[in-house]
Computed example of a mutant assay.
Amino acid sequence: MPKINAATVAEHRAQQRAALIRAAVDILVAQGATAVTPAAVGARAGLARSSFYQYFPSSAALLASIVEEAFTAADAAIAEALADVHEPAARFDAFIRTELHLAAQGAHRPAKALLQADLPPECLARVHELHHRHNAPLQAAITALTGETDASALTAQLVGGTVQAAMTAIEHGADPTQVTDRALALLHHGLNTPARQPHP
Rank of each mutant, 00 (worst) to 15 (best):
L124P: 00
V127I: 12
A94G: 09
L124G: 10
Q116D: 13
A81N: 06
L114R: 06
E87C: 08
I78F: 03
D118K: 05
A61G: 07
F95T: 06
L63S: 09
R97E: 14
R126E: 15
H128S: 04
L62E: 04
A61Q: 00
A125H: 09
A94E: 05
L62Q: 03
P137N: 07
A107L: 01
G106I: 03
R133M: 00
P110R: 00
F92M: 00
V127R: 01
F95I: 05
A83K: 10
V85F: 14
Y55V: 00
E80I: 01
E122S: 15
S58P: 05
A104H: 14
H132W: 14
Q54E: 09
Y53H: 04
A64K: 02
A79Y: 04
K112L: 11
A94P: 06
P121I: 00
F56W: 01
F95S: 04
A117N: 00
S59V: 03
L63D: 09
H132Y: 14
H108P: 11
A77W: 01
H132E: 02
Q116M: 11
A81I: 02
A125R: 07
H132G: 11
G106K: 02
R97L: 03
H108W: 15
R126S: 10
I96K: 09
A90P: 07
A77L: 00
H86A: 13
L82H: 09
P120I: 02
R133L: 08
E80H: 15
R91S: 12
K112R: 12
F56N: 06
A89D: 03
D84Q: 14
S59I: 02
P88F: 10
L82I: 05
I78Y: 09
A74I: 02
F52K: 02
A89P: 03
E122Q: 14
A83F: 04
E80K: 06
D118C: 12
H134Y: 13
L62T: 07
D75K: 05
Y55A: 02
V127A: 05
S59P: 00
L102P: 12
Q54I: 08
D84S: 15
D75Y: 14
A89F: 06
V85M: 08
L124H: 15
A117P: 10
F56I: 00
V67F: 11
A111F: 04
E69S: 10
L114D: 10
A77M: 10
T72D: 10
L124I: 01
A111P: 08
E80T: 15
C123L: 07
A74R: 08
T72K: 00
F95D: 04
V127N: 05
V85E: 06
I66G: 07
A94D: 06
D75T: 06
Y55L: 03
P121S: 09
A73M: 03
T98L: 02
E122M: 06
S58M: 07
D84M: 07
H132M: 00
H131V: 05
F92Y: 04
A89H: 02
A77H: 04
H131A: 12
P110K: 05
A64E: 01
V85P: 12
V127T: 10
E99M: 13
H132I: 08
L124Y: 15
A79G: 11
R133F: 09
D118M: 13
Q105Y: 12
Q105F: 14
E87F: 10
A136S: 09
R133Y: 08
A107C: 07
I96Y: 10
